[in-house]
Design a protein around this nucleic acid. Sequence first.
DNA 1: ATAGGGTTAG
Length: 766
Amino acid sequence: MSSTETLLKTLLRNPYSIKSISQAKQLHAQIIKTNTTHLNLYHESLIGFNAFHPSLPSLALKSIIRCYTSNGLFLQTLTAFVKMWDSGDYPDHNVFPSVLKSCTHLMDLRFGESVHGCVIRVGLDSDLYTGNALMNMYSKLETSGGNGGLSDVACQVFDKMPRLGNVVGNDMCFEVSSDGNMVHFGRNLDRERVAGGSTMGCSMKTSYVSPQSNKQTGFFDRFGGMSNKVSRRNGENGALLMYNVRKVFEMMPKKDLVSWNTVIAGYAQNGFYKEALNMVREMGSASHLQPDSFTLSSVLPIFAEYVDVMKGKEIHGYAIRHGLDTDVYIGSSLIDMYANCTRVEDSCRVFNLLPQPDSVSWNSVIAGCVQNGAFDEGLKLFRQMLMAKIKPVNVSFSSIMPACAHLTTLHLGKQLHGRIIRGGLDDNLFIASSLVDMYARCGNIKTARWIFNDMEQNDIVSWTAMIMGCALHGHANEAISLFGQMEMEGVKPNSVAFLAVLTACSHAKMVEEAWQYFNSMVRDYGISPGLEHYASVADLLARAGKLEEAYGFISRMHIEPAGSVWSTLLASCRVHKNIELAEKVAEKIFSLDPNNTGAYVLLSNTYSAAGRWKEAAKLRTIMRDKGTRKKPACSWIEVNNEVHAFVAGDKSHPCYDKINEVMTILLEVMEREGYVVDTNEVLHDIEEEQKRELLCSHSERLAIAFGIISTPVGSTIRVTKNLRVCVDCHIATKFISKIVGREIIVRDNSRFHHFRDGKCSCGDYW
DNA sequence: ATAGGGTTAG
């Protein structure tokens, strides 16, 4: 504490040292000028001080209230307000906006309603600033439920706090409908009508001191209040929602741009999109006011959610014409809107044009990239953000973590986790869920489970992350058991959760169980299956060898099957060498997508596998004529933060000689132990020895061989492939894992095969 | 006194 502050405190503690109002005013001015960290202390002192100088308190309290609010000391604001009210002094138009703002931040609707009562009583209900603050409060705190205004969660917080005294026998001012909702307010209502209801008023006899005065922030983040755009999107069912905002608005004799913007934002945030847009129009016609940056950044999220890029662009154009396109608020909304419309490049363009991107702009563009699958770009931007000295916040971590999860870069994820813990952010629901997902996807199920168990509440997202992690890594039984536990704990599965459990079934060849879940989803939960659910079941049937059944299932889908759904069946036709069906399926794919090169290759390989070289060659000719090229199968492994990628027959790696040496030795041992190269699947027009060589230089095997020579003995080898693992490689890797005594994890886009001691976690179900 | 960004998807 500085010497000035000490002096001030001493003066305040010795009220007799102050002799006149003017001296007091000087002191007071000094308090406001001084650093406000210890405002709390000053306030306490001031209260004592007031007792000796009864003429002073109102003056001091009035300015200190504004001071508290502008420094985020919202509870102190309310305490001071109560003191002021108690002292019988009327607050003025400077006080109410601050007090109402504090109520809004503390999510205390009931206190706010009381304050509204005071506003009316004092006769300030026509004050512009006060009205605006009132509308803001109602639009943020009122929910559609009939519980008198507070959401369940908010009630829990609220009930723990000391309340104001009961309101009995005052001349206040709310009319209450039978369901407890306030439907009208006004002055001088008949006392009798108010008495029996659940009315709140403003006889503030008790003081308002919360035990939580040290922890004033955090409500919003923890309970997803107004900082969460999803949680308040409940406009469909809330007839009463926005009623009071509207009412205040209509009663305001003077409205300015802020008033309009507040109502528009209220409508937009509560899901009344049509009304919000109508108000923008009305604002122009009725008041000749032009939309400003506030208006636009309230409206843009509507088009983001509607995925209406044309309307979004209109706004963008308007912003440019009015020189508002470099505004960070509009910029962030535009970034989000474009990203939501899957136009990440446009998001980046907007971002790059911002002269001074702030934390939210950075987080918007990072989230935009990650949500559209541009993981590397997201990570790059995250690093740039750190270099720009922008401190990562909650949102930053939960936005970037999925990038680590999908790239399975465990070391990066762990680094971020470290930062999260050091920042004390690990109890955030979003962050914890994203961590569970990251660890689970990286195969670190134990750590995922540990974080999962440590969470205060497990919602559908964290459950699903857990289930999906188990499913992808072949722990089907654990996934299914988790799903059961989730249902038992009353967490209702959604379509993503069902997808996760179906994936688990699919990975373990559990056909019966899959049907059960598929049917239960429709029957018990009324969720209609999406493309992914169909794809998952079809994939399961096909891999299980029930090819005809899979064909029938896909044919009977009630939505158009995408090429990808047919493709998994085609891949299985190849594995099971069913040419007739493969031809039928390929036909379907070509009718949907004539240039699907993957299908040409698969069909051609199916012919090869069955020894029908002519047809295979014919297809390759067609492909060549069409000029289409399949993206080559590619595998990669990360060693020391460096990615080493391989394609089949790849001799370009600097360590190729070593790799080749290892593979030759391995092949010898493998064949001695019973491995037979399945040469059937390769082209017929090359020598047998060449076939062997070709097979033994699959991209997966090159990557594994490199892993063997470049990573510590005993450590896990992690390889990723951009296509499905092939059968021959699968068998070979089982041998390799046993011979070198290492765990090998091969990921083929969607599933992880854990090879250990000659076995694979998937039970040879490829 | 008003506005923008986040977790699960074979």
